[in-house]
Each structure stands twice: as C-alpha cells, then as structure tokens.
Amino acid sequence: MKNWQSLLVTPDTTLEVAVATLDHAGARIVVVVDDQGRLLGTVTDGDVRRALLKHLPLTEPVANVMWKTPLVAGPDWSRERMRAVMENRRLLQMPIVDSQGVMVGLETLHDVLDERQFDNPVFLMAGGFGTRLYPLTENCPKPMLKVGDKPILELILESFVDAGFHRFYISTHYLPEMIRDHFGDGSRWGVSISYIYEEEPLGTGGALGLLPKDDIQLPMFLMNGDLLTRVDYRGLLEFHAQQNSIATMCVREYKHQVPYGVVQAQGAKVVSMVEKPTQKFFVNAGIYVLSPELLSGVQPGKRIDMPTVLEEAIRNQQTVSMFPVHEYWLDIGRMEDFQRAQEQIRSLI
C-alpha cells in the first residue's frame, strides 16, 4: 500500500484522531507503533465500531482498544502468499515488519485482489414530498435537489457504484417522472435501475412489499434518498453476514446534555448529584441491510415504517443488529442541513 506511513499512530493517540485517520485514508486500519517504529498493535474499523457500541469516549487512547497480536508478514513474502493467508484468515489488512518488528509496509486485500463487483441489490427510497424544504421542493423531489452540481440521489448512487454495486431499485411517488428521466435504466453509470412506484405513500418500509421478491436472493441495502454519507458499504455488508442477522440498521451516536443538575435519590435521601450530565443514545441513520426473508413479511400496498418492520422481526425472535457509523453522515431534512451540505460537498468528492 502506498502512503502507509500516514496510518501510523502512537499508543496515546486518541480514538478521535484514529477515526479521523480511518475516514481520511480509507484503509480501515491504523497501526500503533512505538518511537522506534516497532509494531505494537492495530486498530481496525471494526475495533472502533465495537468501542462506539460500548460508548467509550473518543478521548480514549488507542492502546486501550488495539489488537496487540496482529498477524504480520515478512518483507520477503510474495503477494501470492499474502493473498492466500489473508483470504484464509479473512483479513483485510496485514502489516509487514522486519526481523526487529519494525513496520516496513502494509498490504491490503483490496490491493492484492481484482476489483470485486457485488450482486446485492440496493433499494433507494425517493418517494417523499420533502415538505420541510419547501419551496425548493415545490416542483422538485427532495432527492433530486442538487448538492454542488449533482442531485442528492445521484451522489448516493455513485457512492454505491464506486463500492462495486450495480443492481438498483428506486422507489418513487412525488414527481416520479423527474427521477425516471434523469436516471433512465442506469446504463449511463454502467448499472441497472428498476423503479417501484407507490400510488399512495407507504411509509419508509411499505415499498418493500412492492419489490419483485423472487429477484431478491441476496441481502439488500435499503437507504433513504436524502442522505450524504461515506459509510463503508462493503464493511456494512460483511458485518451483516458475520452477525447472521435478518436485518442490520446503521446507527449514529447522539449526545444530549441535560441543562440541569440531576439528582439521584432513594426515597427522600439524596445519594448523588451530577451537574448537567451528558446522555448518549444510538439513533437510526436511515441505512439498512435486509436479508431476503424479511421482505416476505411486508404485504404489498401496506403502509408501514421501517422501525415497525424491525420491531416485528424482534418480536418474532429474529436477530436485528446495529452498525455504528463513524464516517461522515448528513440527513438533509431541513433547510439548514441543505445549506450545510452545499458547504461540505467539496470534501466528499
């Protein structure tokens, strides 16, 4: 891998800096070394997400979450040997160290394999009215509003195409002809696009009942058509498979500071007081991976929202997992979000 040195961090580096390095480099790993460059451990994208699931603060040093015994290669290893080991051990990256344990390189599975194409379908929800962005949406569906010089929905489509996905469905309702005229059959991007038309708004999950279920044989992405994100779609798909889930929901950490001192009591006895504590929650990020069997439970024409679909799966003792998103993410729901997207788009493309 070129520029692997940019992924080196020291043990006292914070998780916040590690996340920024992961997001910037796109290698899904940072390597922890000492002052002499000797390998101490690695922090992968998965390690960061597990830390977020535990609500560890971003001020935590990477030494507390790193994997201390990563599998390494020697500088004399051939690429064929590295590829064989990485595929056998299901590794996405492998540090290369010399006889003294000093980092001399980093190999990634992405670099040693040909570009892969994924047959998993992608379902983009683009049927909403976007009333909170009126008057911009008076004559334009919200997903077709331009951020920079491209519609939001086109930016989403291209992010999936860049990750290797080529089968798309788009749900439409409000001004559907504008979406169809712009995207056509997808050949402009080298992909296939089919359209699902909702005669009546069916909620965030109801359009699932209109899909050709016999054609959905692999886990499917479902994503709102008003999001900008750099989430790792391949990593999300791998996570879904590892969890053996019927559904995986992307989540974001949301912090809320109580503006008052919080008092804990036992009866009339005060046992503790915390001044303006910060509470942390996971909130729905509007991106899902759904196994094919989940679709069979959504009836055609039935209005239902995705949280209800997932709640029914949980009641049926089916596994629903969550995937914490640390990458860039912006829900363009309000006018101020739309303006923020215009300011930030140059850093995303």
Rank of each mutant, 00 (worst) to 15 (best):
G206N: 06
T229L: 04
R50P: 03
P95E: 07
A341P: 03
Q243L: 06
A247Q: 03
W77R: 08
P95N: 09
D76H: 15
T42C: 10
Y134G: 07
N244W: 06
P300Q: 10
F165S: 03
L222D: 00
G127V: 02
K68F: 07
E177S: 14
Q344A: 10
R89Y: 15
K280Q: 13
P141Y: 06
V231I: 15
T229Q: 03
L145H: 05
P259Y: 10
G130Y: 01
R252A: 04
H182W: 12
P95T: 08
R50H: 09
L227E: 01
S272T: 12
A18Y: 01
G101E: 08
F183L: 15
A247F: 01
E293I: 06
E177T: 12
V30I: 12
S245C: 08
M249N: 00
M335D: 12
A247V: 02
K54D: 11
P277K: 09
S296L: 11
R303K: 14
G105S: 10
L133W: 07
P300L: 09
G128E: 05
I193S: 03
L227I: 15
A163F: 06
Q299P: 01
P95W: 04
S321C: 10
D111Q: 13
P300C: 11
K142W: 04
D226C: 07
V17F: 08
E200G: 09
L236R: 02
Y328C: 05
V147D: 00
E16M: 13
I179C: 06
A247N: 01
L136D: 12
P11M: 07
L175K: 09
P75G: 13
W77S: 11
R79T: 14
R340T: 13
A268H: 11
E198C: 11
K146S: 15
G297P: 01
D162C: 08
A27F: 11
V191W: 04
P135I: 11
I349V: 13
T21Y: 05
T319F: 11
T278E: 15
G74R: 14
R234M: 11
H256K: 12
S245G: 07
R303Q: 12
G37F: 05
I287Q: 01
Q242A: 14
S194W: 07
E253Q: 02
H55M: 08
L113V: 12
S272K: 14
T44L: 04
D149F: 09
T10P: 01
L39S: 02
Q318C: 10
W329K: 00
F123E: 03
V283D: 02
H173D: 04
F281P: 04
E198I: 08
L22K: 00
L227K: 04
E343H: 11
V271H: 08
M178Y: 10
L39V: 06
P143S: 12
E327A: 12
S296M: 09
